[in-house]
């Protein structure tokens, strides 16, 4: 579905991503894990078109989408939920959702809206409340809901666990995993919290200082030495 080939991004003299390749197949969750500053968010931002890569390609269903504008990439079916619960506090819950996928037909959008409300019932209950009145977990649900309103084939989740209680994180990620399984959605999940991410992901990629240092089935990664090395500094 989504294929990344040799992606390199630098901010001035700082190389944030160096020759990163990975694949995001439909119907399952793929995790990218790594410590702070590993280049995880840069990867997500360049996939969504917010950052222009210096080298490499991003292929979506075989089409080269490298360097396209974020609004065009969103319209193609790749939806990013950025780090830090990207809701618009000045708008109501429902307006935040309606913002997603405005280019789609009325029927498509109302189907998506009722689907989001059934996935996240709390959003339906609070639809006319201001988004600034929601709790952190609710806002994360709202941010994911907005992305789903775009009717994506690929969902990019950047650090959804940030600042949330473990129980809420588990609930949200389980929902995401279920969505991938049931509707064939391709999910790329970026997480600092490796245990949480690898629990729902089929495959994992380990990123360190912008370079892929390990990849494989989640179970193997969880037990691997590399991971221990990166996170704990033991060998």
């Amino acid at each position: 579905m989504l294929r990344v080939e040799g992606l390199s991004v630098s901010y001035g003299a700082v190389q944030a991503l160096n020759d990163v390749s990975l694949e995001v197949p439909p119907g399952r969750v793929t995790a990218v894990i790594g410590a702070n500053g590993a280049g995880k968010s840069t990867l997500m931002r360049s996939l969504a078109g917010l950052v222009k890569p210096q080298a490499g390609r991003v292929l979506f269903d075989g089409d080269d989408i490298t360097g396209r504008k974020p609004e065009d990439i969103a319209r193609m079916g790749i939806s990013l939920v950025p780090e830090g619960r990207s809701t618009i506090p000045e708008l109501s819950v429902e307006d935040n959702l309606k913002l997603g996928g405005m280019w789609r037909s009325h029927t498509q959008r109302s189907t998506s809206l009722s689907r989001v409300y059934s996935l996240f019932p709390i959003l339906g209950e609070r639809r006319s409340a201001g988004a600034d009145t929601l709790s952190g977990g609710e806002r994360q649900q709202l941010a994911i809901g907005r992305a789903l309103m775009c009717g994506p084939q690929v969902l990019l989740l950047d650090e959804p666990s940030l600042g949330l209680a473990p129980l809420i994180v588990a609930q949200i990620l389980e929902l995401v995993e279920g969505m991938a399984r049931d509707s064939g959605l391709a999910v790329l999940l970026v997480e600092q919290n490796a245990t949480v991410a690898l629990r729902i992901a089929r495959m994992g990629v380990v990123l360190n200082l912008g370079t892929v240092v390990g990849r494989g089935p989640s179970g193997e990664l969880l037990a691997s030495e590399e991971l221990r090395h990166i996170y704990l500094g033991t060998g």
């Binding site: 969103a74 950025p82 708008l91 996928g101």
Partner: peptide
């Protein structure tokens, strides 16, 4: 309010 979120939602900001 938030051009980045708007663009990610497909709005031609």
């Amino acid at each position: 309010f938030n051009p980045t979120v708007a663009r990610l939602s497909g709005v031609r900001v």
